[in-house]
Every structure is written in structure tokens, then in C-alpha cells.
Simulated assay, not measured.
Amino acid sequence: MIYIDPPLWPAHNTHFSHLVSDTSLEELHAFADAAGISRRAFDQDHYDVPAHRHADLVAGGATAVDGAALVRVLIASGLRIPARERAASLVHPLRQRWEALLPGAPELGVELLNRWGEPHRRYHDRRHLLQVLEALHRLDCEDRPVLLAAWFHDAVYDGVPGADEEASAALAEQLLPATGAGSSDVAETARLVRLTVGHDPDPGDGRGALLCDADLAVLGREPGGYDRYAADIRLEYRHIDDASFRSGRSAVLAALLGRERLFHTRRGEEMWGSRARSNLRRELTALSRSGPLRIQPASPDGEAGIPGA
């Protein structure tokens, strides 16, 4: 069922309601499409709809509930996105991490956080930055060039694989020297950023293995988290038609599955390898189905213009 709460949330000279499903994002998108609600109004687990639409959405089948009941419905559905996975809520904890990594360079930290917060990003945003940094922590990485490379690796993101990584590496080469970072750290940071084009470091490249594994750790998330990642990737490439996206994305996933080692560190393979392969196979199956391409989160039980990871 579809639920809507009262229009109590002020913004843009009106008030907004939240529109949610207790079943799936597929059901929610279908209802919104039929009601003529733009996909731009979708915010990860709900639609924001202006006050003047409340009555006609109820007439169209949405069940009116109060705000507390709507939150309970969303939590029970398993579709709710936790606050830590909302990019806007991560500025303060990320700023603290930056200041611990490179004290005395707060302006650069602010610039990078602004870049990671650009509105066109749906997956490669501050959530992804935090996830990579947390994955490096789980890999026991305290190496400064690797951590700096994590901050810079998608600092430029226009959805152009290869060009984005090159521009991000060049940005590190341009901005890091002014912070007092040594030339060797700057060069190594840029080299590591460039490795994220193919996530294929040479044997013995320990730093490269750490960064590439952390960048791909999302593949080993629990099924619901992986499906949110896949849906966000589709939204970042919403300018590409379904057929082209299916073809390109399927090729990327098949190439990842064809690797002898998906993760280059033993710990990364142990933590994420088995679940990552299961997720990749499941997404490939979803991509092989006909019909509109909408990837919805799993139940709680349970790149040439086309995105890689």
C-alpha cells in the first residue's frame, strides 16, 4: 500500500508531505508515475510532494496517516534509509576525519566535501566517501597516501569513466602541494586515484590493493544495501536509455564476476568476496528481465558512459 502524511514540512514557500510504500520502491515509483510526480521528488525512500497534491493523492489511493505512523510503516517495510546513509547528514563526521588526516588544511576539506555533495550525484556522494574510509579502517589501513586517495578518487564526477579519475588525480596534484604535503605523497596519491579506473593493481602493490578493495567494498554489502547502491547507480545514469544501460552495466558486472580475485587483499576477500559475487549474480539476473528497469531493495530478510562500481 501507499501512505502519505500531512503536509507539515516547510520548504519553497509551501509545505510538503511524504509519500511511501510499505511493500517496495517499485510500487512507490509506479504510483508516483501514474500521479505525474517527477522522479526528481524522490529522496531515497520517499517522495516529497507539495501540499496542493495531498488531497488528490489520497483520492488516487494513498492512505492518509500521521507522521509517526508513516515512519513506523517505513521502518516495518525495510525500505527506510538510515541517517548515516543520507549524504547531507555526513558533513560533520567527514570534516572530523579530514582534520585528523590533514590538520591545518580545513579549506581543502571544505572544497572536497562540497564536491562530494554536488546535487547530480546519487551514489558517488558523501555516503560513498564515508563507506570507502570505513572500509579502509576495516582493512587496518592508516597509510596517508591511501587515505588521501580515498578523499580525491571521485572528487571530480561527471559520469565519464576514465576522464573522471584522471581529472580527480590532476586535482590532487594541483591542490595538495599547498597543504605542505610532500611531493612523494602527492605523486602517490594521484597514482592511486588513477588506479580506480580499472581496480586492477599490480601484484605487490599493497597500497593499490587497499584502495581498490575499499572502493569495491559496496559490492559485498547485505542485499538491501547493495540494491540501494544499484538503484542509485541507475539514477546517476538516468540520461541513458534502459537498453543501453542494461548492456553496459551487464558487461561491467560480468567482467567483475570473471575475475579470479574480485578483492586483492586476503581480508577484503574474506569480508566481502562471497556476498559480492552473490549480489553481482542477482543484479545480472535482474538486468536480464524485460520491462522497465527498476531495481528495488531486497527485503530485510534476506564504465564507457555506463557505470562500473
Rank of each mutant, 00 (worst) to 15 (best):
195 L>M: 11
285 T>Q: 11
45 D>E: 13
210 L>F: 02
288 S>E: 13
169 A>Y: 00
190 A>R: 11
71 V>N: 12
275 R>F: 08
193 V>C: 07
154 D>A: 14
130 L>G: 09
47 Y>V: 11
102 L>E: 10
168 S>E: 05
309 A>F: 13
250 S>H: 08
9 W>T: 06
93 P>G: 07
70 L>R: 14
125 D>H: 14
131 Q>M: 10
130 L>M: 15
52 H>V: 10
266 R>L: 10
208 G>Y: 10
191 R>P: 03
215 D>I: 07
64 A>C: 05
178 A>R: 03
127 R>F: 13
146 V>Y: 02
114 N>F: 02
266 R>G: 15
186 V>W: 06
231 A>I: 01
269 E>F: 09
15 H>P: 07
283 E>D: 12
82 P>T: 02
296 Q>N: 06
152 F>P: 13
220 G>H: 09
218 V>Y: 03
274 S>H: 12
95 R>Q: 03
19 L>T: 13
201 P>Q: 03
180 G>A: 09
181 A>E: 14
298 A>Q: 04
246 R>K: 02
13 N>T: 05
42 F>H: 10
32 A>C: 07
179 T>H: 05
24 S>H: 00
77 S>G: 04
245 F>Q: 01
180 G>V: 01
93 P>T: 02
196 T>R: 01
231 A>C: 09
46 H>N: 06
85 E>Q: 13
272 W>M: 08
84 R>Q: 11
150 A>G: 02
99 E>M: 04
273 G>P: 05
296 Q>T: 15
25 L>G: 06
291 G>F: 13
75 I>G: 02
285 T>I: 12
117 G>N: 12
227 D>H: 14
18 H>C: 10
280 L>K: 06
256 L>W: 14
206 G>I: 04
19 L>V: 15
203 P>H: 13
251 A>L: 11
150 A>Q: 10
207 R>A: 14
308 G>H: 05
309 A>M: 12
8 L>E: 08
144 R>S: 06
260 E>G: 12
30 A>F: 03
69 A>F: 00
81 I>S: 07
8 L>C: 12
82 P>N: 00
44 Q>S: 14
203 P>R: 15
289 R>M: 14
150 A>S: 07
92 H>Y: 04
121 R>V: 08
110 V>E: 14
107 E>C: 00
217 A>G: 05
186 V>F: 07
15 H>N: 11
85 E>G: 08
246 R>E: 00
140 D>P: 00
176 L>T: 13
259 R>V: 14
251 A>H: 08
104 G>A: 05
249 R>D: 01
229 Y>N: 03
39 R>N: 12
33 D>V: 09
19 L>R: 03
287 L>Y: 13
307 P>T: 10
231 A>E: 11
68 A>S: 07
